[in-house]
Design a protein around this nucleic acid. Structure first.
Lengths: 350, 350
DNA sequence: CTGAAAGCGCTTACAG
DNA sequence: CTGAAAGCGCTTACAG
């Protein structure tokens, strides 16, 4: 491995000058610049990131803005752990990470947390952009300040985000349909239960449903898809009544698809006679959902690798800051098919 | 963050002395040691790994000893890429990685490659221990020299390996059976085809078959399991004859399970009439196997995350060397269930 | 436009 | 048993 010193000697200049061209810091004559660049290229030289990190000491910080998790929806706990783990790993580069959470029901909390993070003067942002209008405001600020940002988990278009890290929701829904179909007879009816208001994260839920529906159409499988909306706020008893009444009135339903991480709340409310005779497929290996897998209430969970989402987003951003590595515009993580038997090996970071 | 300098000042000693107690390097009086330790503890101090890495520059090297890959079995290409990628990542710690491959049919090549690696005086070894007798010899040398080693992919017992990184083969086979069963009727017969001699890697193949069989027994599912052995050396035409004749003579066979990474060679040889009516399940997302998934010849592939195996083994060893982090004794990677639709998102590192 | 020098925090001979 | 000093490779004021 060459060093800057050696490059400098070969070019008959000082190390400082090499550093200047290395980082396009200007103030170098065209002639020396050309000479140095040639030598750098000839040796395929790249700076030693350790030495760089040490010299830059605490130069960079990454702000992460993600939803809070709560007992009924633990989903965001896992990306948060991924972020923390990555933060630990990149300490070696002197990069700091600051995470703040917001309430997915309250756009103001999103803006407030963002402003709070901004105060610390971060070099970059990782954002789970739950609210599209507010995200526009936020992004305007970031772009004015030239702060790079990566979107996490929630895929929205029309922004100059450095990258998106998450799941291909359409394909995930498509796969759910295939799995569902393999467990039921042809010409079955399926029920989609949306357990939370579509105001947040709606893109993913919407795309999952789209993928689910598309599978049956593409394969010319006779089917009927029904939809039931159940709000978060509803009490368990109301939920019970609504679900079980619905199923009673639609005895042709052979499968229930829950395109959110809340399938456990559906399982919770369904009568045993339905639980035993209807196939259920949901998303995300939260502890409550995994429990449903273990008791055979749910056949499959599709996981979007929440830990990896957080971990990768931070690492990619750090590589961008420290090494100037440009990440792919979209990073789609593997779509994990989880069953009772393999779920334990999938790092359950809750 | 405190620095060694500050700790030293507070203890009225030099930085060198603090370093000595930090790394238990001895040569420090009991009294100063106690004093320094107290101060370290009080501030919850830990060394800056970046500075440490820079100062230690090129102190460590890891030797990796794995099977070679070839066109008919690409499996080992992917762990190799994982190793290379990890090597890239840990360059920042000044750790070097040297990989040598051996022929899984030739124990001598295993020993020879090991001796070659030993010459470079590595700080640690990553070994895929294909041959148990030869591994004993190798390990004796390593233990005499106090060189730590991690076993990769092939799980053998009775050694003081720092860790094992790979798959829980029994559960993988068990899952294969569950998937197979969901695609076939009760009371079916299943054929297990072993496409390579059991001399190498036999543990994994053996355990997969064990898990496969166990599933049917545990669930009281009437079944019959047949076995066909086909050697590597056999030509495609002989393979064709043997497989198709066997299937003709056993029309009750509804599923074929190939507990190795060579299911593509079976698909290659089976007549269409069998291909269309028999469920096939195999292991590993090599390009040829993925092709079988895409053409619907194979229903499921179970992947053991070969890239991650290589990557993780190197990273764990580096953490052990650089930070003295002790890894878990067994690291079982997730058992990936791959179908046509999700296989593209599983990093296919071939 | 360019160089010399100090500094990031730790480790390591070397001297005593 | 302990300290002073050089060095790892890069970055950054500062001086010219």
């Amino acid at each position: 491995m060459k060093t800057i010193k050696e490059i400098a000697q070969e070019a008959n200049v000082s190390e400082g000058t090499v550093d200047r061209v290395l980082h396009n810091r200007g103030g170098v004559s065209k002639k020396t610049e050309t000479k140095i660049k040639a030598i750098i290229k000839a040796h395929n030289f790249s700076v030693n990131p350790v030495a760089s990190a040490l010299a830059l000491k605490n130069k960079f910080s990454i702000a992460a803005l993600i939803p809070v998790h709560n007992t009924s929806d633990l989903f965001w706990k896992s990306p948060n752990i991924g972020i923390t783990k990555a933060a630990e790993d990149i300490k070696t580069f002197g990069t700091q990470v600051l995470t703040l959470t917001y309430n997915q029901q309250k756009p103001e909390s999103y803006i407030n947390a963002f402003n709070e993070l901004l105060k610390s003067n971060p070099s970059a942002f990782i954002i789970a952009p739950s609210f599209s209008e507010e995200t526009k405001e936020i992004v305007a600020v970031l772009e004015a300040k030239n702060i790079p940002y990566i979107f996490l988990n929630i895929e929205i278009e029309g922004f100059n985000n450095l990258s998106f890290v998450g799941q291909d929701a359409f394909t995930a829904g498509y796969i759910a349909a295939k799995l569902m179909q393999s467990k039921t007879l042809e010409s079955s009816s399926f029920l989609i239960i949306q357990s939370r208001k579509n105001i947040t994260n709606n893109n993913a839920v919407f795309k999952r449903i789209e993928g689910f529906t598309k599978y049956f159409i593409e394969h010319n499988i006779p089917h009927k898809i029904l939809t039931l909306e159940i709000e978060n706020q509803e009490s368990k008893s109301i939920r019970k009544t609504r679900i079980n009444t619905y199923l009673k009135n639609h005895p042709d339903i052979k499968g229930v698809f829950v395109p959110s991480s809340r399938i456990h709340m559906i399982v919770d409310s369904m009568k045993d006679e339905y639980l035993n005779n209807i196939e259920l497929i949901g998303f995300d290996n939260t502890p409550q959902n995994v429990e449903c897998l273990m008791t055979d209430s749910v056949s499959y969970l599709i996981s979007q690798k929440p830990f990896d989402q957080g971990y990768n987003a931070i690492k990619l951003m750090n590589d961008y800051l420290v090494k100037n590595t440009i990440p792919d515009r979209k990073i789609y993580l593997p779509i994990d098919i989880l069953i009772k038997e393999n779920v334990i090996y999938n790092e359950n970071s809750y």
